[in-house]
Amino acid sequence: MEINNKSLQFFLLCSLTLLSVATCHPVQTSPFGVGFYRRTCPPAEDIIRNAVNKFISKNPGLGAGLLRLHFHDCFVRGCDASVLLDTLPGGPAAEKDHPANNPSLRGFEIIDAAKAILERVCPRTVSCADILAFAARDSVYKLGNIWYEVPAGRRDGNTSLANDIPGNLPPPFFTATQNAAIFKSKGFSADEMVTLSGAHSIGISHCSSFASRLYPPTVDPTLNTAYAKTLKRICPPQTANGTGSVDPTVNQDPLTPNRLDNLYYVDVISNKGLLTSDQTMLTTKSTAKAVLDNARYGSTWAKKFAAAMVKMGKVGVLTGKKGQIRLNCHFRN
Results as ranks from 00 to 15, higher is better:
77 R>N: 09
75 F>C: 05
90 G>F: 04
124 R>Y: 15
76 V>S: 04
109 E>V: 12
111 I>A: 05
112 D>R: 11
102 N>E: 11
107 G>T: 05
91 G>L: 05
122 C>S: 03
98 H>L: 10
91 G>A: 11
81 A>F: 05
107 G>F: 02
111 I>M: 04
95 E>M: 15
102 N>A: 11
104 S>K: 06
88 L>S: 03
112 D>E: 12
86 D>W: 08
82 S>D: 02
77 R>K: 11
123 P>Y: 13
122 C>G: 04
116 A>L: 12
71 F>T: 04
116 A>D: 11
89 P>N: 00
88 L>P: 01
72 H>C: 12
109 E>W: 13
91 G>T: 08
87 T>D: 06
92 P>F: 04
125 T>P: 07
88 L>N: 00
110 I>R: 01
81 A>L: 05
81 A>P: 07
85 L>R: 01
106 R>H: 13
99 P>H: 07
79 C>W: 01
74 C>F: 03
121 V>D: 11
83 V>L: 01
114 A>Q: 05
116 A>C: 07
92 P>Q: 09
123 P>Q: 11
114 A>T: 10
73 D>A: 03
80 D>Y: 00
117 I>F: 09
88 L>Y: 03
84 L>R: 00
75 F>H: 04
111 I>D: 03
78 G>L: 07
117 I>N: 09
121 V>K: 13
92 P>D: 12
97 D>G: 04
100 A>R: 13
96 K>W: 09
115 K>A: 08
98 H>K: 12
83 V>S: 01
123 P>S: 12
87 T>K: 03
109 E>Y: 15
80 D>N: 08
89 P>L: 02
77 R>I: 01
81 A>V: 10
102 N>H: 10
115 K>L: 15
101 N>S: 14
112 D>A: 14
93 A>W: 05
84 L>Q: 00
91 G>E: 08
81 A>N: 05
112 D>P: 03
71 F>L: 05
83 V>G: 00
77 R>H: 10
123 P>T: 12
123 P>C: 14
82 S>W: 00
95 E>Y: 14
80 D>C: 00
122 C>Y: 02
108 F>L: 13
91 G>H: 07
110 I>L: 03
109 E>H: 14
71 F>A: 06
74 C>E: 02
79 C>G: 08
70 H>I: 07
71 F>S: 01
80 D>M: 01
104 S>V: 14
103 P>N: 05
